[in-house]
Structures are given as structure tokens and as C-alpha cells.
Deep mutational scan, measured.
Amino acid sequence: QIFVKTLTGKTITLEVEPSDTIENVKAKIQDKEGIPPDQQRLIFAGKQLEDGRTLSDYNIQKESTLHLVL
């Protein structure tokens, strides 16, 4: 699982696999929060994550925290 922290300070927990794409993660966030993926920007280690890449591409491991910017 990974954590996604929103600007409001809320933390969302997501069940993911390293092979999941960023697009996939955004879809999971939409399921939980109702935020359309095209409004979501995910930041990890100061980098904006691209939809077509996977979590493992960015070396995002379990218990990692991503930041969600709208």
C-alpha cells in the first residue's frame, strides 16, 4: 500500500502493486475521493509523475507517500 497526502492534509491509503501505472493510481484516487484523474497531479520526491509510467519506474515502494496537487 502507499499513502497519498492531499493539500488539505488528508491522507488516503491505496492498495497498489509496483506494476501499477500512475494512471491506474489516479483512477483509484477517483474511486475513493471522486476527483477526476485529469485534475490530479501526483508528486513524489519533488517530481511530477507521468501517467504512462509505473510506480516501480519511480522507485515508489510500499509505505511511500505521494503528494496530490489539484
Rank of each mutant, 00 (worst) to 15 (best):
Q1L: 15
Q1W: 15
Q1H: 14
I2W: 02
I2N: 01
I2P: 00
V4W: 01
V4Y: 02
V4C: 04
V4E: 01
V4N: 01
K5W: 06
T6N: 06
L7Q: 14
L7A: 12
T8L: 11
T8N: 12
G9V: 02
G9P: 02
K10T: 08
K10P: 05
I12W: 06
T13I: 13
T13L: 10
T13C: 11
L14V: 09
E15C: 15
E15V: 11
E15D: 13
V16I: 09
V16S: 04
E17A: 09
E17P: 03
P18Q: 08
P18T: 09
P18G: 10
S19L: 09
S19I: 07
S19Q: 10
S19K: 07
S19R: 07
D20F: 06
T21I: 04
T21S: 08
E23L: 15
E23N: 09
E23C: 14
N24L: 15
N24D: 12
N24C: 14
V25P: 00
V25I: 13
V25R: 00
K26N: 01
K28Y: 07
K28I: 06
Q30M: 13
Q30N: 09
Q30K: 11
D31G: 09
K32N: 05
E33K: 05
G34Y: 03
P36V: 06
P37N: 07
P37K: 15
D38V: 09
Q39E: 10
Q39Y: 09
R41G: 06
L42P: 00
I43Q: 07
I43F: 15
F44H: 06
F44L: 04
A45D: 12
A45R: 14
G46D: 06
Q48N: 12
Q48H: 10
Q48V: 14
Q48K: 08
L49M: 06
L49Q: 00
E50D: 09
D51C: 06
G52M: 09
G52V: 07
R53E: 04
R53D: 05
R53A: 08
T54I: 06
T54V: 06
T54G: 03
L55K: 00
L55T: 03
L55C: 06
S56Y: 11
D57F: 15
D57N: 05
Y58M: 04
Y58V: 02
Y58P: 00
N59D: 09
I60W: 02
Q61Y: 09
K62R: 09
K62H: 15
K62Q: 13
E63W: 13
E63V: 04
E63G: 15
E63S: 10
S64T: 08
T65N: 04
L66P: 02
L66N: 01
H67T: 13
L68Y: 02
V69D: 07
L70C: 14
